[in-house]
């Protein structure tokens, strides 16, 4: 049985806006390390009307948090369209498909298919990881469930198919750099609809990546949302530069964040924090304006980790409010 999607793959707000040619804005909601629904509700309220959809992370950095699907339902109740993130780290193909049926039944329409951070980074480093599928096989499985009405094993889905708008991540800054555009092409071949990139703190490198993507014609087959990660302090910039695998941070950002607190005494923590946040938001706005002009970019994905308050001023400052509406 095919679903009523009026020609859309999923009918999600995100898909409709991208299809209509709008420059989309997504952000991120990190679920709590507790069973408190109010955390999600509060974060969702900060994003409502500011973004077109919000990612709900799945045990990000391998730390146990409230389920992304349960959190997505809470976000939906607050009027924010969720993008359910799911990793290959914690589930085998049975659990993945079962959760996809459940997530769709509960109203989720966007899905982000991820490999997942290695468990050694999280709070259960002695856990067994799964990786039954990799992210590309995962994308293909979700596409086949939607378009062919088949489970991964080939059995027919008798009844409502989970028709997700399928997303994936891509890291233009990881190595081998020359493989990255091809890996994107593989994700497209597997059936991905949209891509959210890793946080961009090296625009020239991103520009080079996008040039290759456009030369290969990939931007016409997938919507690419550029990752924006507002910096919260000079320390955060240095941490990303030195400690986060697969990140590239240009020195100018570290210097700007350091300069932002020049002249403010170390003891005045409040003034320093405010100065950093102002500068972090300013950089993010400038980045959006610059990245928006790069051919092949269809939107931005703002990852203000545990700083959802920053999203509105960034989106507003970039001139992207109010958000468009498509019927």
């Amino acid at each position: 049985m095919s679903n009523q999607t009026n020609g859309y793959k999923s009918g999600s707000n995100l898909e409709k806006l991208l299809r209509a040619g709008h420059f989309v804005v997504t952000a991120e909601i990190g679920p709590p390390q507790s069973a408190d629904p109010e955390v999600i509700r509060r974060k969702a309220r900060l994003l409502k009307g500011v973004v077109d959809a919000a990612n709900i992370t799945d045990n990000q950095t391998a730390i146990v948090r409230m389920s992304s699907i349960a959190s997505a339902v809470l976000a939906l109740q607050e009027g924010v369209e969720p993008i359910v993130q799911m990793t290959c780290r914690d589930r085998n193909r049975l659990a993945m498909q079962s959760d996809l049926l459940g997530a769709y039944a509960l109203g989720a329409r966007n899905l982000l298919c991820l490999t997942g951070d290695h468990q050694s980074f999280g709070n259960h480093p002695t856990a067994k990881n799964v990786h039954d599928l990799d992210s590309i096989q995962f994308i293909r499985m979700v596409r086949d469930m939607r378009d062919e009405g088949r489970f991964q094993c080939g059995d027919e889905i008798k009844g409502v198919r989970p028709a997700f708008f399928i997303g994936a991540a891509e890291n233009p800054f990881a190595d081998p750099f020359d493989f990255r555009p091809y890996r994107l092409a593989k994700k497209i071949a597997a059936g991905v609809d949209f891509i959210q990139t890793q946080i961009i703190l090296d625009i020239p490198r991103f520009r080079e990546f996008m040039k290759r993507v456009v030369d290969m014609g990939l931007h016409e087959k997938v919507y690419i949302l550029a990752g924006i990660g507002p910096l919260k302090s000079a320390g955060a910039a240095r941490y990303m530069r030195d400690k986060v695998p697969g990140m590239r941070v240009r020195e100018e950002y570290v210097e700007r964040m350091e300069a932002a607190v020049a002249g403010i005494p170390k003891e005045d923590k409040k003034a320093r924090k405010e100065a950093w946040e102002r500068e972090g938001i300013r950089i993010a706005i400038e980045q959006i304006q610059e990245i928006r002009e790069i051919p092949g970019v269809a939107g931005v994905h703002i990852m203000a980790i545990e700083w959802e308050e920053a999203v509105r001023p960034i989106v507003e400052g970039a001139g992207l409010l109010p958000r468009p509406v498509v019927e």
Binding site: C88, T115, D134, I136, D175, P176, Y182, K186, G246
Partner: peptide, 16 residues
């Protein structure tokens, strides 16, 4: 591969 990937490197590969 720490994640047993079959279709290429994850986003955490850097400098080899």
């Amino acid at each position: 591969c720490s994640k047993q990937l079959l279709n290429g490197p994850c986003g955490g590969s850097q400098n080899g």
